[in-house]
């Protein structure tokens, strides 16, 4: 058990180092100097841009050699310093991310958890109920097959503009001030609903299909047949099937976390909902090295942490894992 966790931990550390390095290097060797980009759009007095340019180059230490910059990057990272954004100067990357990341959690956590739970339940139901399956399976497939942003846009248009049930954008109304009032929480909820719903529904399809197939598979295995012949109730067999089927689903959750987290970018674009994703797209378009690094770092950490938690959970629900590292399966 200890060996299992140690191994996982080492893999995560390697992943972390690799991803962070990659993410440090790619923007720097890509075309487009962030400072020049920023300068070209300022309207300042003739000669003012040269003054700004030398100011920036000095401020961001971009006149140092790449190696010095790389070493400096790790050094400040361990000091907890993510640097200062170029495009949003003089804000620190950490503060920018802190202001946005909470919105990722608010949308992503419920969408991931609820879609996984409900998706698995619905899938299991569909797997054992032929009649329901004929209707549900195409629905699941539709949900998982439609391009997310297209689906979200249609939802936003129908529920927001045609029916006028929900606001189409932002985290809360312009006239609202954040606080623990009923009015604000309700307003926040209304704004949160469509981004949540779209992410929830799209993911729901995938989980449901996975579980449906798993259940059908399990209820047709030899052991299920054997149990049946022993006179076990259908319900009991189904429960066994569900329990076996849930294991690959947990793995699936771990595997797809990266994709889901990234998918939030699209949600934020469609609903102009704040969050890391939009921040990163903007940072990339402006080639803001420090902000790209910071966003990426946070995403990686989030995904790694979630994976680690899932690994631990997996260890408890599947005893085989504990043994798998002491010998061949």
């Amino acid at each position: 058990m200890g060996r299992y966790l140690t191994r996982k931990l080492i893999i995560y550390i390697i992943t972390f180092l690799f991803a962070v390095t990659l993410n440090w290097a790619v923007p720097r060797f890509a075309p487009g100097d962030p400072i020049k980009m920023l300068l070209s759009r300022f309207e300042v007095m003739e000669g003012g841009k040269d003054i700004l340019e030398s100011f920036f180059v000095k401020t961001f230490g971009l006149d140092r050699s790449p190696l010095q910059q790389y070493v400096g990057f790790w050094r400040s990272l361990f000091a907890g310093d993510l640097g200062v954004s170029i495009s949003q100067y003089p804000k620190s990357v950490f503060n920018i991310i802190r202001g946005a990341i909470i919105y990722d959690f608010i949308i992503l956590l419920p969408a991931i958890i609820l879609s996984w739970i409900i998706g698995n339940k619905l899938g299991a139901f569909s797997g054992v109920n032929k009649k329901a399956d004929n209707f549900l399976m195409p629905v699941f497939y539709f949900l998982t097959s439609s391009p997310y942003f297209w689906f979200a846009l249609v939802i936003s248009y129908v529920f927001g503009i045609v029916l006028g049930l929900f606001p189409t954008s932002h985290a809360y109304s312009a006239t609202m001030r954040p606080g623990w009032t009923l009015a604000f929480i309700w307003d926040f909820f209304l704004h949160w609903f469509m981004p949540f719903l779209s992410l929830f529904l799209v993911q729901l399809g995938g989980w449901a299909i996975g579980m449906r197939n798993m259940i059908i598979y399990e209820t047709n295995t030899n052991y299920a047949k054997y149990m049946e012949s022993l006179g076990a109730t259908e319900r009991l067999i189904r429960n066994y099937g569900f329990r076996n089927g849930i294991l690959p689903q947990v793995t699936g959750l771990a595997i797809s976390l990266g994709t889901i987290v990234s998918g939030a970018v699209l949600t934020q674009m469609v609903f102009s909902y704040p969050g890391l994703g939009y921040l990163m797209v903007q940072a990339i378009k402006q080639n803001d090295y420090f902000l790209i690094q910071g966003c990426f770092l946070f995403l990686i950490i989030m995904v790694l942490l979630a994976n680690f938690v899932i690994d631990i959970i997996y260890m408890f629900i599947d005893p085989r894992v504990r043994h798998s590292y002491s010998g061949e399966v």
Partner: peptide, 14 residues
Amino acid sequence: VLSLALGSTAALAA
């Protein structure tokens, strides 16, 4: 999570 997001500013709907 919500409380982190909202901070402590009092609600005041203009």
